[in-house]
Nucleic acid binder design. Structure first.
Length: 422
RNA sequence: GUGGGUGUAGCUCAGUUGGCAGAGCACCGGGUUGUGGCCCCGGUUGUCGUGGGUUCAAGCCCCAUCACUCACCCCA
């Protein structure tokens, strides 16, 4: 047997309905906030991700699905969506019509990591990105929108964490201070952190190794080094969240791995997912549009881990089960032939219809109707055809009525659409 | 990439010191010659993850490999 690729998965009927519901809930909410859908390709030139995410990140260094195509161009299955959305914003000069653009996009991402709970090699994200707005209010609004989405999806026990990473103006001073602490504490750090302290010192801050945590207890906090503009920005985000009654915690160790973040950074965390506690990650990336060759426009966005969201929602697959409105139990060749015509006509009229094409006893057919949880069973055999009327059984009340063959489709339609709409 | 746990029927899982591969559920049929759920009776379902090895004999022991799973790293 050929199995699917490690870390990939099928989303089967029965669970897909829940995915669809989450997706449509997100779409309608986001659209109310002025976001429009953008669809971007799942492959890009490798260079796009290398430049936007950062050469020194784990994603680029070891997690991307990168291939040489037939003309030896390096292409990569996207590990995240932001880079492509930014590319599209720039390539189509969408800023020319209006620098302010709000997009959302939903789709699969690919990272070649070791799979575990809440982490797959093909996973799905719901992304939202805002371009051209520098105001801290929009940062707060994104978090507000996420909290509302989660409450609509019956997600409980989530917590918003926020932090500020400063800007190219103030971050260097912080990095200097951090470097001092790190070089003094080198002996306490784990081997990963020794490497990090040179290449990406911010990352040492969220290391989970106890000795590193201990070494970091008196490390400087970025928010103490913010320049006056960044400080004001962060204060405004916090005040806006308070006004909106969105609870949050300030998380000084919340340092995002991707190079392009500036100022606000946030995560929504849950306790249900083991080590993968982030359901949403996001933040501001004011420098990225320019860095990728576009105008100097600010931007902010987030990515929701769709698979993770599915796992923590209070909604169950059973909530979305679709049962047939009617099951046609047909006996004999003539019965099946007529039933087939009716089945097509019913389905065409918006009635969920099932029938069985095998030659089985009425008892078997009834069992099948019961298994499918059909609301009604329409019985037709030689006897009914001779008598000119079929039997319609209400499976809940067990009431049976005789329905003449003339005008049958219209009569059934009227009866079923009446009860299902009631 | 590193470490732990687990792979036996469609599903959940038993399987003793190595000695005929099992149960429950599901599925199919019957009990009711044309009426579902409950009940009763009968039946079907296996590359014991895969490939080697040890042995008279392997689901069980050994090696390798693959998958699942949890954790590390990192991230959504």
């Amino acid at each position: 047997m050929i199995q699917l690729i490690r870390g990939f998965k099928d989303i089967l009927p029965g669970e897909v309905e829940l995915w669809q519901y989450i997706e449509s809930t997100a779409r309608s909410l986001f659209e109310d906030f002025g976001f429009r859908e953008i669809r971007i390709p799942i492959m890009e030139r490798t260079e796009l991700f290398a430049r936007s995410i950062g050469e020194d990140t784990d994603i680029v260094e070891k997690e991307m699905y990168t291939f040489a195509d037939r003309k030896n161009e390096l292409i990569t299955l996207r590990p995240e969506a932001t880079a492509s959305v930014v590319r599209s914003y720039i390539q189509h000069k969408l800023y020319a019509d209006d620098p302010v653009q709000k997009f959302y996009t939903i789709g699969p991402m690919f990272r070649r990591e070791r799979p575990q709970k809440g982490r797959y090699r093909q996973f799905y994200q719901i992304n939202a990105e805002v371009f051209g707005i520098d105001s801290p209010f929009i940062d707060a609004q994104l978090i507000f929108m996420l909290v509302k989405l989660f409450s609509r999806l019956s997600v409980t026990d989530v917590e918003a964490h926020i932090n500020s990473l400063g800007c190219p103006e103030c971050r260097p001073r912080f990095k200097e201070a951090l470097a001092e602490v790190l070089s003094a504490a080198t002996e306490k750090l784990c081997s990963d952190c020794v490497r990090r302290s040179l290449r990406n010192p911010l990352r040492v801050m969220d290391c989970k190794v106890p000795s590193c945590r201990e070494a970091m207890t008196n490390a400087p906090a970025i928010i103490d080094f913010l320049c006056s503009e960044c400080r004001l920005h962060f204060e405004t985000v916090k005040q806006a969240l308070e006004k909106l009654k969105i609870p949050f915690v300030i998380d000084k160790r919340l340092v995002r791995g991707l190079d392009y973040y500036t100022r606000t950074t946030f995560e929504i965390q849950t306790s249900y997912l083991g080590a993968q506690n982030a359901v949403v990650g996001g933040g501001r990336y004011n420098g990225l549009v320019k860095a990728l060759g576009g105008p100097d426009q600010p931007a902010v966005g987030f990515a929701i881990g769709f698979d993770r969201l599915v796992e923590i929602t209070g909604l169950k697959n059973a909530d979305f089960k679709q049962n047939p409105d009617i099951f046609i139990a047909a006996m004999g060749e003539n019965g099946k032939a007529r039933a087939f015509e009716w089945a097509c006509a019913f389905a065409d009229s918006g009635i969920k219809t099932e029938m069985d094409f095998s030659d089985r006893s009425l008892k078997s057919l009834m069992k099948r109707a019961d298994k499918l949880s059909a609301a009604y069973v329409l019985m037709v055999g030689e006897k009914e055809l001779e008598e000119g009327a079929v039997v319609l059984r209400d499976m809940t009340t067990k009431e049976q009525v005789s329905i003449p063959l003339e005008n049958l489709v219209e009569d059934i339609k009227a009866k079923i659409l009446l009860t299902t709409n009631a």
